[in-house]
Simulated assay, not measured.
Amino acid sequence: MANNTIRVRMVRGANDADVAALKAWLEREHRLEVLRNGGRLEIREQPSVQDPDSSPMGAAMDIVLVLVGAAATKLFDEVYEQVKSGVRAWRENRRAVERGEPPEVEVAPENDGR
Rank of each mutant, 00 (worst) to 15 (best):
K23F: 01
A59Q: 00
F76T: 03
V79A: 11
A96Y: 02
G86R: 01
G13V: 02
E98R: 11
R9G: 04
V97N: 08
I63K: 00
V64M: 04
K23R: 15
G38D: 13
D51C: 09
A60S: 13
M61R: 12
V83E: 09
D18I: 08
E92D: 13
L75H: 07
N3F: 13
A17M: 09
R88F: 10
N3K: 08
D18R: 01
S54C: 08
E101W: 05
V19S: 05
R7N: 09
A96I: 01
A108C: 04
R7Y: 04
L75N: 11
Y80R: 05
E27F: 00
V83R: 00
E27L: 02
D53M: 13
G39F: 03
M1C: 09
V11T: 15
R114N: 12
R95Y: 09
R28V: 08
L22N: 01
D62S: 02
V64C: 05
A108Q: 05
V97A: 07
N4C: 14
G13R: 06
H30E: 14
V66R: 14
G39M: 04
E106F: 04
P109C: 04
E101K: 11
W25V: 01
E27A: 06
R88K: 11
R12T: 09
T73V: 14
L26N: 02
A60E: 15
N4V: 10
N37M: 09
V66H: 10
G38W: 04
N15F: 09
M61V: 02
G69T: 06
R91T: 13
L67S: 07
R91E: 15
A72C: 08
V105M: 07
L32T: 02
P47T: 05
R36I: 03
A59G: 06
R114W: 14
D77C: 06
Q50I: 14
S48H: 10
E101Y: 05
P52N: 08
V79P: 06
A72R: 07
A2C: 07
V79K: 02
W90E: 00
R36V: 03
L65S: 03
R36T: 12
T5A: 13
R88H: 07
P103F: 04
Y80E: 11
H30I: 10
R95S: 14
V97M: 07
A2S: 13
N3A: 14
Q50M: 13
